[in-house]
Write a protein that binds this DNA or RNA. Structure first.
Length: 399
DNA sequence: AACTTTTACAACCGCATCATT
DNA sequence: AAATGATGCGGTTGTAAAAGT
């Protein structure tokens, strides 16, 4: 059966088209388009897909995990000839792979300068910061992390960092705190289960979460605490985060916090006293419940009661810096919380207007918000901190 | 112990971009 | 200027290992 192919105003038999395509050495521009269509027709007739020809003939080429033998062949070939010419490389190297697969294997796995193993705290912090600026530009992020590939960073982001940010109420896309992401229900329901803990201190712990930079730092440090406490300790010592003189949150007096915090799990491996910053870390979604309910004084082993917690924590104003030059209370003086059954009301009437800053480290070199040098940076950071709770916030909405 | 679910990561795929013709 | 090829990039998938039941 003869196949008729309409081409422009003329119809050709398929055999005619094949003949012309195979024998025509040079095409005039006016004919190029016709022959391009011809090529497509032939491809279609032969069952090939439309569009650009694939980078390799898929037939007979291996896919899936690479074997050590294949790795060796590829490595040996590149050591001699260098990377590049990926289309012809597999054939020359004796590999039944497409060039794309070879390039990926080399750049993501076999390259000698690739750093293997866990991401360090500094690397993780860098990734988070760069992602907040660059978004999902993995190659751009990888370019600033020597030895790490874009694929590796992307995977690490998706499997570790992204989930952790979500868990801790931070939008992994915008890096802004999101109350709807925060697992407030577990935090509050746990608290509400124990009426003795219905006090301002608990809510202050929750409130501390609402400082986005503290959230971010807490998130990172908490995960590190769980996954690699040694590196955390090293980092804390380097950045003096455990030095009470650092006054990371000046409104919370070290004397009021030392006792419970020294016994908190974060510091069990360290003799270095911790500050309120770490207490706020404890207050995130992963550590909040247990740590808020299990605080005890180190000497007496006496568990803290509601009243002692109140004594220790009540009346501590929490502020979020919303602009480089001013601070405002996170909650208005009229902010109220109400328990599920309405039996407990909370307010922050005692909040004093003493302005404080929130000098949370923003990068591994311990740059603090207050010490940023340029207006752009200030603006950038202050935009990160724009976050407030509506006065009409109702806890029941989160339950 | 067996099975299911979750996690981690290597690899694939399609599209975009750049360089060459 | 347009077509074509090579390479890079980012989203997604497949699968082995680990964790949970």
């Amino acid at each position: 059966m003869e196949v008729i192919v309409p081409l422009g105003s003329t119809s050709y038999t398929f055999s005619q088209l094949v003949f012309q395509a195979s024998s025509h050495p040079s095409l005039t521009p006016s004919r190029k388009l016709h022959y391009h269509r011809l090529h497509l027709c032939i491809s279609l007739f032969q069952g090939k897909s439309m569009g650009r020809t694939p980078c390799c003939d898929k037939n007979g080429l291996k896919k899936g995990p690479w074997t050590p033998e294949e790795d060796l062949k590829l490595t040996n070939y590149i050591q001699i000839h260098g990377p590049g010419n990926w289309r012809t490389l597999p054939k020359n190297a004796g590999l039944q792979r497409c060039g794309k697969s070879c390039r990926l294997r080399w750049t993501n796995y076999l390259r000698p300068d690739i750093k293997r193993g866990r991401f360090s705290f500094e690397e993780e912090e860098t990734i988070i910061q760069l992602h907040s600026i660059l978004g999902n530009k993995w190659s751009a992020i990888a370019a600033r992390l020597p030895g790490r590939t874009d694929n590796e960073i992307k995977n690490y982001w998706n499997t570790h960092i992204r989930k952790r940010l979500l868990r801790n109420g931070i939008d992994p896309v915008t890096h802004a705190p999101r109350l709807d992401f925060l697992d407030l229900s577990s935090i509050l329901s746990s608290t509400l289960c124990n009426q003795s803990l219905l006090n301002v201190s608990s809510l202050l712990g929750t409130q501390a979460l609402l400082n986005p930079e503290l959230l971010r730092l807490a998130n990172t440090l908490l995960s590190l605490k769980q996954e690699n406490p040694e590196i955390l300790l090293q980092y804390l010592q380097q950045n003096q985060l455990c030095n009470s003189q650092q006054n990371l949150v000046p409104s919370l007096q070290p004397s009021q916090l030392q006792a419970p915090i020294q016994n908190a799990s974060t510091c069990t491996t360290s003799n270095v006293p911790c500050t309120s910053t770490l207490s706020q870390m404890q207050a995130n979604g992963e550590g909040f419940c247990s740590n808020m309910t299990n605080f005890s004084y180190p000497n007496s082993q006496e568990s803290l009661t509601s009243s002692t917690l109140n004594n220790a924590f009540v009346s501590q104003p929490i502020y979020v810096q919303c602009s480089p030059n001013s601070t405002v209370p996170l909650l208005s003086e009229n902010s109220n919380f109400q328990s599920l059954d309405g039996s407990q009301n909370f307010n922050f009437d005692s909040v004093s207007p003493t302005p404080i800053s929130s000098p949370t480290p923003l990068n591994s070199s311990s740059t603090f918000i207050n010490s940023v040098s340029t207006d752009d940076e200030r603006e950038s950071f202050s935009s990160l901190l724009k976050f407030e709770i509506p006065e009409s916030l109702d806890i029941n909405d989160f339950m």
